[in-house]
Design a binder for these strands. Structure first.
Lengths: 109, 109
DNA sequence: TTTACATATATTATATGTCGCATATGATAT
DNA sequence: ATATCATATGCGACATATAATATATGTAAA
């Protein structure tokens, strides 16, 4: 696996993008539908400027594309592969979450 | 895919953990070796308190385990599956990175 | 050309994360 | 007991992220 510095840093940027519940919710909503901002707002139940802001970040990192039609801007998942990875993570976590957050003893030996 | 709120939040926490170059470097070093702090410090070339700090975070989120033997504390990857996901991300990025960061025009239509 | 609507941007406050340095703990050997 | 080595923790400066609110842009219709 290529772990050269620039690639690592780029990966880290994407992880930062994914480190936010609202953004992931938006990505998931876009999994099946292309959608305009209003319907995203309706779905994730967040203030519109917040949604626009998160969409701008998703766009900046090429996780979504957008196209303006009339008054509306439609956003679309640009990177199904990313969502597959998120799926893998969610699957992992839902298994992991059954184990206790951490055993009482600090030190194994 | 189960996208219940607690699971989503847990996934987001792990993404936060992965959002740091130093932590990923440490994880990769542990991919093959179990290692004590000193050798990790030697390998990633960071100040020891920084390494200990990042290790504490990795431990807190169960990405590594640790065991004290004598004066040394050995860390071990607890979650090879996570590293598979990181591999997938790195692979993704190294493809993606060939495309330009973003086309000039803001709006597709 | 005003008006209304959809979306984006700016502003501010607050929280969270990072990193370096100093210091504390804990174990071993002398 | 004390010195030494390995590791962890605490703290402060700084940067970055989040969230709420206000305001601006751009488009279309009246």
């Amino acid at each position: 696996m290529d772990v050269s510095e620039p690639i690592l840093e780029e990966a880290v940027k994407i992880y930062k993008v994914l480190s936010n519940v609202n953004r992931i919710k938006i990505l998931y909503f876009l999994e099946n539908n292309e959608a305009d901002v209003s319907s995203i707002v309706a779905h994730v139940a967040l203030p519109q400027p917040m949604v626009s802001h998160q969409l701008a970040i998703l766009f900046q990192y090429q996780l979504v594309t957008r196209s303006k039609r009339g008054k509306h801007v439609f956003y679309c998942l640009d990177d199904p592969h990313i969502l597959e990875m998120v799926n893998a993570m969610l699957g992992h976590v839902s298994h992991e979450i059954k184990h206790e957050p951490h055993p009482g003893r600090q030190w194994a030996d």
